[in-house]
Computed example of a mutant assay.
Amino acid sequence: MANDHSANPLRPRTGRGAASNLAGRFVPCTSTREGDGWETELEPLERLETEAVEEKAKSIIATNRSPDLPFSQSINPYRGCEHGCIYCYARPAHAYMDLSPGLDFESRLFYKANAAELLERALRRESYRCSPIALGSNTDPYQPLEREKQVTRQLLQVMQRFNQPVTIVTKGQLILRDLPLLAEMAQDNLCRVAISVTTLSNDLKRRLEPRTAGPAARLRVLETLSQAGIPTAVMAAPMIPALNDCELEDILSRATGAGATRAAYILLRLPHEVAPLFRQWLEVHYPERAAHVMSIVQQSRGGRDYQSDFAQRQAGTGVFARLLQQRFRVACRKLGLNTGDEGLDCSRFRRPPRPGDQGDLFSL
């Protein structure tokens, strides 16, 4: 039985994105707390602490053949994400562990302590064929937990030794901790970083992505990375109808001024439990426009909250989706974004010798 720890009515929690611990889709029975009408005041919400659990992973590189993704292999150092972005499409994965995609996703985290060891083992296999690895395709590799666990840093150190190309998407300022390492990899065309900028409004950011860096801080990160010679991109994602879609051109312009040379956007995606969680979030933070937002979302998703078809899940369909796509293309053309090929160099990949390997004899 899963418990939804939120009492009615739904209320925002300071520093958290979800308004409830909505049960995952595999839970057969749930319970909720209901008021009996006698309360004169709402009970204060209990403080929700973050718990980090070590996970011994069996493998570390995930592969995909999705035609709408720009990478074929990826690594996620963490399960769950303390950033608490309400729209995160990785939330439903927590249901596979009998945890809620809601508050559990933000507060019950898992880190892959043996990730670097598994990566080195995978890269040393004779069957491995080098292609760029996307770091953090689900949860953010530079979420707050990384400061303590350093799983992402350890993975990057392995990649640097093997000359393994890597792409990174993050909202975290913590990436600047690894600036020297990333700059060295970029000199050999082995690294590219995308910074996700969802909004330029601090107020909307606090509600939408409660534990992330602010918009100005992300633009400074983008500028610092660019000045260090690291190819950078901006992810204007997700674009949410009637909330932040009006900011698209401004986000792209500010990011270009900070040094970004490439850009991408994604229309809001609401798979599985993300849809009811997002609806709850709208009712808590923007009740006056909740119906309007979801009406446009459904117009862009074939009359439903979400469609998973590879051909349209990133951009959607319908009038709003087409207009958003046209606006993006026009803005990129005016700003000079997405010109030229900035592919990473896979030809440098090598397997460095280990102590005791026969190759060591020739270095004496």
Rank of each mutant, 00 (worst) to 15 (best):
M1L: 13
A2K: 10
D4L: 02
R11T: 14
T14Q: 08
G15E: 01
R16I: 15
A19C: 15
L22T: 15
S31V: 15
S31P: 01
D36C: 12
E41M: 02
E43G: 01
P44T: 03
E46G: 15
E46H: 11
E46N: 11
E54Y: 05
E54H: 07
E55V: 15
K56G: 09
A57K: 04
K58D: 11
I60Q: 00
N64L: 12
G80R: 02
C81H: 06
C81N: 07
H83D: 02
G84C: 10
Y87D: 05
C88R: 09
C88P: 05
A90L: 04
R91T: 01
P101H: 03
D104L: 10
E106Q: 05
A113H: 12
N114H: 07
N114I: 10
E120W: 01
E120V: 01
E120F: 01
R121K: 13
P132D: 00
I133W: 02
L135E: 02
D140P: 09
Y142Q: 05
Y142R: 02
Q143G: 00
P144N: 04
E148C: 08
K149N: 02
Q150K: 15
R153S: 12
L156A: 10
Q160I: 03
R161V: 07
N163E: 07
P165L: 04
V166L: 10
T167M: 11
G172E: 04
G172H: 10
I175H: 06
I175Y: 04
P180F: 07
L181H: 02
A183Q: 09
E184R: 14
M185E: 04
A186C: 11
C191W: 00
R192E: 09
V193C: 04
I195S: 00
S196N: 09
S201I: 01
D203W: 07
D203T: 09
L208I: 15
A217K: 09
A217G: 01
R218K: 13
R218H: 07
L222Y: 05
T224P: 03
S226L: 06
Q227C: 06
G229V: 11
I230N: 00
P231G: 00
A236F: 12
P238N: 02
P241S: 03
P241Y: 00
L243W: 01
C246V: 11
E249R: 14
E249Q: 13
S253R: 15
A258K: 04
A258V: 14
A260Y: 07
T261D: 02
T261S: 09
Y265M: 13
V274M: 01
P276E: 03
L277F: 08
R279S: 12
Q280E: 15
L282C: 13
P287M: 03
E288A: 14
R289W: 01
R289H: 05
R289L: 09
M294W: 15
I296R: 10
S300I: 10
G302Y: 10
G303T: 05
Y306A: 03
Q307M: 04
D309Y: 03
A311D: 11
A311G: 07
G318S: 06
V319S: 08
A321L: 06
A321G: 05
R322I: 08
V330G: 05
A331T: 14
C332N: 02
N338S: 05
G340M: 09
L344N: 03
S347H: 07
P353N: 00
P355D: 06
G359P: 00
S363K: 11
L364S: 05
